[in-house]
Computed example of a mutant assay.
Amino acid sequence: MDPFYSNYIGIIIAAVLILIVISVFLRFVPVGLWVTAYFSGVKVSIGTLIGMRLRQVSPNAIIRPMIKATKAGLDINTNDLEAHHLAGGNVNTVVDALIASQRADIDLEFIKAAAIDLAGRNVFEAVQVSVNPKVIVTPNISAVAKDGIEIVAKAKVTVRANIERLVGGAGEDTIIARVGEGIVTTVGSAMKHSDVLENPDSISRMVLGKGLDSGTAFEILSIDIADVDVGRNIGAKLQIEQAEADKNIAQAKAEERRSMAIAVEQEMRAETQRMRAKVVESEAEVPLAMAEALRSGNIGVMDQYRMKNLNADTDMRTSISGKSNEEE
């Protein structure tokens, strides 16, 4: 082989090896990010960036927020940011929250912001709500005054985030539930529904005075009744349902008494039929008894005739008595 071509192939192989080495080096050593950090005032070494790669931490996820924090004048080190990232937190959100709190003159440290973020709350949004209060609109809440008339109310609750209670504090659902409970209690204590319609601000004053934001992540600034409507006449509806229930109970008891009377009547009829059957049976035995008496000589023929005459006379008197009663 020609020495020229041999040298040419050697140069190509060396160039490919150099490119591979450079690619591997740039893969583990983000030189561009290091240069950007250096000229942004973030003092981070190449070894630190390589260590992030080895710990499977994206250097961009740490250095970019670090650059923002440095430009904003915050004193944060890369170890804290990396530890928060490894714990599953959002480093960029925490840094944005710290910058926003610094601009709004809110005392918020990195440890507190990281704890809020790891607790599952959006710390940057919390800082924004702390500066710019948020309005929570409750659903329609039904309550019944003492006169039985239903009142349907909707409230707007203006709240501000309480940074100190974000960790462990209740959320918006608790605020809505407590406001709803306060509205139901206030309307329920009113003697007439018209009193509530005339003074809807009485609901706001009473509910606001109950300290509903206790134990929550918010501070209630105001409660405004946005809408009040008259609903159903619950009292009349309950009275109608009670009357219907009483009627059904009375009908059931009357049906029970009727059934018992029918049963007693049927029992008396059965007893009467049994008595009649016994009478018929006894009357059937009379001729046999008389025949036996005649054979034994206990009675004579004349006695039998006198008995027949007595029976005939009795039947005639009974017949006459029955006709007289009918004529009267």
Rank of each mutant, 00 (worst) to 15 (best):
Q102Y: 02
L74M: 08
H85T: 07
A104N: 00
E82V: 12
D96Q: 12
F110N: 00
D80S: 13
L98A: 08
I76E: 10
E109K: 03
N79L: 09
A97N: 09
Q102V: 03
L108F: 00
N92H: 15
T78V: 14
I99L: 04
L98V: 09
K112G: 00
I106E: 03
D80M: 11
I111E: 11
L86R: 12
G88H: 11
G89F: 14
I111R: 04
L86G: 04
A115H: 04
V95W: 04
V94A: 11
E82S: 15
V95G: 05
A87S: 14
A87I: 09
V91C: 09
V95N: 04
R103G: 04
R103I: 07
I106S: 01
L81A: 15
D105M: 02
L98P: 03
I111M: 05
A115C: 03
S101I: 03
A100M: 08
E82F: 07
Q102E: 04
A115E: 10
L108P: 01
A83L: 13
A114I: 11
A113I: 02
A114S: 14
N90V: 11
N79K: 12
V91R: 06
D96A: 12
N77Q: 12
A87R: 10
A115L: 07
G88M: 11
G89N: 12
D96W: 07
I99W: 05
A115W: 02
R103F: 04
D80A: 14
A114V: 10
D96C: 08
L108H: 00
N77P: 06
D105V: 02
D80R: 08
L74I: 13
R103P: 03
E109Y: 05
V94M: 12
D105H: 02
G88A: 10
L86K: 14
A113F: 02
V91D: 07
I99V: 07
F110S: 02
D107C: 00
N90M: 13
I111V: 09
V94I: 13
